[in-house]
Design a protein around this nucleic acid. Sequence first.
DNA 1: CGGGCAATTGAGCATATTCAACCACAGTGG
DNA 2: CCACTGTGGTTGAATATGCTCAATTGCCCG
Lengths: 235, 235
Amino acid sequence: MITTDFLRTHRTPVLTADDRSILENAVGRTLKMSARQIIVREGVPLKQCTLLLDGFIHRFKDTSDGRRQILAFHVPGDFVDLHSYPLKHLEHSVAASTDVEIAIFPHEAIRDITAKSPTLTELLWKSTLVDAAINREWLVSVGARSAAVRIAHLLCELQLRLERIERADAGGFALPMTQIDLADAVGLTPVHTNRMLRELRERKLADFREQYVRVHDREGLCAFADFDPSYLYLD
Amino acid sequence: MITTDFLRTHRTPVLTADDRSILENAVGRTLKMSARQIIVREGVPLKQCTLLLDGFIHRFKDTSDGRRQILAFHVPGDFVDLHSYPLKHLEHSVAASTDVEIAIFPHEAIRDITAKSPTLTELLWKSTLVDAAINREWLVSVGARSAAVRIAHLLCELQLRLERIERADAGGFALPMTQIDLADAVGLTPVHTNRMLRELRERKLADFREQYVRVHDREGLCAFADFDPSYLYLD
DNA sequence: CGGGCAATTGAGCATATTCAACCACAGTGG
DNA sequence: CCACTGTGGTTGAATATGCTCAATTGCCCG
């Protein structure tokens, strides 16, 4: 099923068979895109939403002086631009981090869902709000946590989000991005990000090498990161 | 009308008289609270939402090492915790910055709205997403803009948001908070915030004194702040 | 009058940035 | 086949930005 990972990620409310099929039937088509392609461009009117099926996607915004802030990393099961349904266009861009497979949900299909099923409507709404909660947690990280802690926190988050969809095990997970991407996400320079990764390695907490995060001491990492997963609303 | 400022803030979609009255009738009761009172405590199950009618409210989260990150400032017309309807509880707290007047919308009343009016449902959903867009813009500020620019950006945002509800004029606006609050919002220490405010004053852009922001050179301030208001979705 | 809070300033320090160099590796073209 | 090029990772040294600590002022309020 197209929506399997989405339902793994959001375990509540539990859906009836009816609702599950309404959701599944809202899928327009699926397609593949290659790494670094822009999926949604800032400001462009949208008529569809995108569910990520496989690969990684990130959302970002550039400032006038040439810096880039990554706003979100998306894993399979995430709607990457569901907020375009009420908002009609986005104030940031969305791009494929890796080669990806995505499913398209036309806005009309979403409108249909809202007409047919209050439960599904609430679930979709909720998913956009969990996304916002992650935005806020990143704001806390960048605004109030030190460089090393910030990075550790992000690794904890990704580990948990990937576990839900069975893309991680206790030992670690594939993270197909560069230190530059990581740096743009946590608001640091690539050079400093590199040094902080070394610190995490030297503390024997985690190790990011060859697109793979090896978590050596999960409890220690979470403690070091000041990590409290309640913002992910796993329930 | 209770919802006047909310409708001023969100000009689209334009509502029918029917929808306007459905929304207005969803109000349970209004009440006053005094400055610094906690309105919503992190993690507590919620059965109602809060619309701010008068005064200022902020949302915040504390880290384990005692730092506080302010996540949002709310002005009259903002729902401060509408996201509690789909999420059931919040991962952060909400507090009155000043003496405030608020209106309570029971979750049942919101559910009623979603049953009766798709247009209103979408409007409410949209309002939670504009809130999220502001979170993201703050993330860009804290992650990618320098201290002085960050503060200037926040002032530009507040000016615009307050103008929509006729709480600001071209010369400036009342901002009833301390430099400490400002510092916690932009991820700086109060000391450094103070110095950056001095810089804005010396550049003859804006001046924050006695709970009032005087904007001396609005165009210059916006330019200095790298301010693009599209994230507010004013339309 | 005294106590507490906010604003302000100075001095020294810590954290993160910038600039620069170097290595490894993959892809490209001669 | 091998030089050439571009990208990402790594490290060092100098610099800048923002933090900490400390002290002073003004003001409101009990």
